[in-house]
Design a protein around this nucleic acid. Structure first.
Lengths: 163, 163
DNA sequence: TAGCTTAACTTGAAGTTTCAACCCACCGAG
DNA sequence: CTCGGTGGGTTGAAACTTCAAGTTAAGCTA
């Protein structure tokens, strides 16, 4: 990248990178596996359902939902079509502005979230929080924020706009 | 999960979880995007090529390579077929034991890695190491190890069998 | 009000990953 | 030495994601 053939990673950095890369792959696939096994849905589908379950009226615009679930609008559109077929969600044009589409969680969909969430949270707790001390959790949070800020300099905060 | 409706995440835990989840999605997609833009390959393909480039004789068994790149054997098989079509890799049965297949990096493939790696490492450095202090890097590494151990209690170490 | 532009989706095709079935080289038992 | 078992690898189909249009509602301009 630069004149001197670009600084390689030293041993410590390399170990850190392996730990982080391993974490990203393993953790997300472990959580995916738990959801698939216990609820028959993917992590992305879970995020969509959970996103709706937390919204007022259990309703959100597709574009907002896509941002919340960290996916493209196209991906969300295909996914919601599948969820619709399951009877968990339905779509309707926004009465206030016909360009938007509102996704709404049905009662059946709500039941699905209620049945699924506790097991998923338990798995997150088992894999992420149980093995860490309070101090380590704080450090991890801080490091995560810094990296996220490096990726998204503008946005005030990570994925879902909290802080 | 348990009697009392399964412990939910408190505010601090929730913030930590959002930071970590955001990190996993954003970082991997940012690195994917860099590779796609600058080299026209996916992160998985890069890992395969890089894995071969670091191996003795630029050669590895498919199963070893799959473990190194954190992917299924089937996924690797399809991927290597594509890389073969590009002329970057070829496959040959292991002369020592015909059940194994050896994947070998060609000279063209080597050139591809050499052309691609510095830019990729620079991006990792920019997004992960530059924003963290030395101490934070160490803490992140430690937390990553612990989480990885929770996911893989048996394996002595994360993804690629180093340590 | 007609025409242009923009932005939010949707859609179908192409590309990738997963899943389940299959093939085959080696090994060990009889 | 042959027969079954085991494990590495491949393959094709189904499922999913991405990509490049296409559609439509709203706003703006004349």
């Amino acid at each position: 990248m630069s004149a001197d053939e670009s600084r390689w990673l030293n041993d410590e950095e390399h170990a850190t990178w392996l730990a982080l890369a391993g974490l990203m792959v393993q953790l997300s696939s472990a959580l995916d596996a738990q959801l698939q096994r216990d609820a028959g849905i993917s992590h992305f589908e879970y995020q969509v359902l959970a996103g709706l379950s937390m919204a007022p009226e259990r309703t959100r615009r597709m574009s907002t939902l896509a941002a919340f679930a960290d996916g493209s609008l196209s991906r969300l559109s295909h996914t919601v079509k599948r969820l619709e077929k399951q009877g968990w969600v339905y779509r309707t044009p926004d009465p206030a502005d016909g360009r938007y589409t509102l996704a709404v969680l049905t009662d059946t969909g709500w039941d699905k979230v209620v049945a699924t969430a506790p097991g998923h949270v338990a798995e997150v707790r088992r894999l992420v929080f149980d093995p860490l001390t309070k101090a380590q959790q704080k450090q991890l949070r801080e490091a995560g924020h810094r990296i996220n800020k490096a990726i998204n300099p503008d946005t005030r905060c990570p994925g879902a706009g909290n802080c």
